[in-house]
Simulated scan of single mutants.
Amino acid sequence: MGLQAEWIQYGQGQSGYLVRPEGEELQAPGVVVLQEIWGVDAHIRDVTARLAGAGYVALAPDLYADGGVRPAELEEPRLEAAKRFLNGLPQSAWRDAAARTEALTALPERQRAEVETTVGSLFDLGGLRAEFADKAAAAAAYLREVQPQSSGCGVAALGFCLGGALSAGLAARDSALKGAVIFYGAPPEADAIASIEAPLLGFYGALDPRITEAVPAFAQQLEEAGKSFTYHVYEDAPHAFFNDTRPSYRIDAARDSYAHTLAFLQRVLAPEAAPKRSGGSGPAAGLA
């Protein structure tokens, strides 16, 4: 099965990376892929393609872009430079402004200024969370209502870190969402839990206490509210264990979590639940 990949614009100035199985007659469920702070980078594009290869129409909305254009400090080369800089620090120092400033002195002056500006922007995204949530919701609506191959089919969400939090938030916001996968994302506010209708699946690292220590309470709140939530904590895994472009990558946790993810998507986006076009075929999905 071939794949078609393209950057698209949709909705009200939204843009994103869309990968879908080839064949206009093929209908398939949709998956919204929600980025880490690094944007729709090579890793997120690869995950989007993997999901399309499993038989889904996958869309990664560019949370940083408006009308297809990002601010200069959040363009991909600048984000990659910031990632390389932060990868050279202990993760405990990432949010320590003094430690970052000291490490920045080792960079050439121009590069230092650019990295400092980009890192500052990445650690000051809180005011944009509502805008990001709108973009996630617009991506789900596009897949469900507009994109020809997935229109009328079920849509689920999957996100990492920043995107993991948005995936859970989308489940609270979008009553039509069929499921949400959370990779090491912070839980939503307690008052959002009552609105969650879709089943949730979460993956966390034991070496990521800032995120993982909040999960048992989140699970208890969901259970008390009668919601469905299954989660896995990998003992030797840090934050971002799924990202195979970073030193945090842990192959065993990544392999296991991806197998669980595909099984979950197969269940919540069951082919028999999706309408078929005349002459079309149902979606293909698997654990490969």
Rank of each mutant, 00 (worst) to 15 (best):
residue 145 E to G: 12
residue 146 V to Y: 06
residue 146 V to F: 10
residue 146 V to K: 10
residue 148 P to R: 13
residue 148 P to Q: 09
residue 149 Q to N: 14
residue 150 S to L: 05
residue 150 S to V: 08
residue 151 S to I: 01
residue 152 G to P: 02
residue 154 G to V: 08
residue 154 G to D: 07
residue 155 V to S: 05
residue 156 A to D: 00
residue 157 A to V: 02
residue 158 L to Y: 06
residue 158 L to A: 09
residue 160 F to G: 04
residue 161 C to A: 15
residue 163 G to M: 05
residue 163 G to C: 08
residue 164 G to K: 12
residue 166 L to Y: 08
residue 168 A to C: 09
residue 171 A to D: 13
residue 171 A to H: 04
residue 172 A to K: 05
residue 172 A to Y: 12
residue 173 R to Q: 15
residue 173 R to I: 04
residue 173 R to K: 14
residue 174 D to W: 05
residue 175 S to I: 03
residue 175 S to G: 08
residue 176 A to Y: 07
residue 178 K to C: 11
residue 179 G to R: 03
residue 180 A to W: 04
residue 181 V to S: 02
residue 182 I to T: 03
residue 182 I to L: 09
residue 182 I to Q: 05
residue 182 I to W: 01
residue 183 F to H: 14
residue 183 F to T: 01
residue 184 Y to Q: 06
residue 184 Y to N: 04
residue 184 Y to C: 01
residue 187 P to E: 00
residue 188 P to K: 12
residue 189 E to Y: 00
residue 190 A to F: 07
residue 190 A to G: 06
residue 190 A to P: 03
residue 191 D to C: 12
residue 191 D to T: 11
residue 196 I to Y: 03
residue 198 A to G: 09
residue 198 A to C: 11
residue 199 P to G: 03
residue 200 L to Y: 05
residue 200 L to V: 10
residue 201 L to K: 14
residue 202 G to D: 06
residue 203 F to Q: 07
residue 204 Y to C: 05
residue 204 Y to K: 07
residue 206 A to D: 08
residue 208 D to R: 08
residue 208 D to Y: 04
residue 208 D to H: 04
residue 209 P to G: 13
residue 210 R to Q: 15
residue 212 T to F: 12
residue 214 A to N: 13
residue 215 V to K: 06
residue 215 V to W: 09
residue 217 A to L: 13
residue 218 F to H: 07
residue 221 Q to T: 10
residue 221 Q to A: 15
residue 223 E to G: 14
residue 224 E to G: 15
residue 225 A to Q: 06
residue 225 A to M: 00
residue 226 G to H: 07
residue 226 G to D: 10
residue 226 G to S: 01
residue 229 F to E: 02
residue 230 T to D: 14
residue 233 V to D: 04
residue 233 V to K: 02
residue 233 V to G: 07
residue 237 A to L: 05
residue 238 P to S: 10
residue 239 H to D: 01
residue 239 H to K: 07
residue 240 A to W: 04
residue 241 F to A: 14
residue 242 F to G: 11
residue 243 N to G: 07
residue 243 N to V: 11
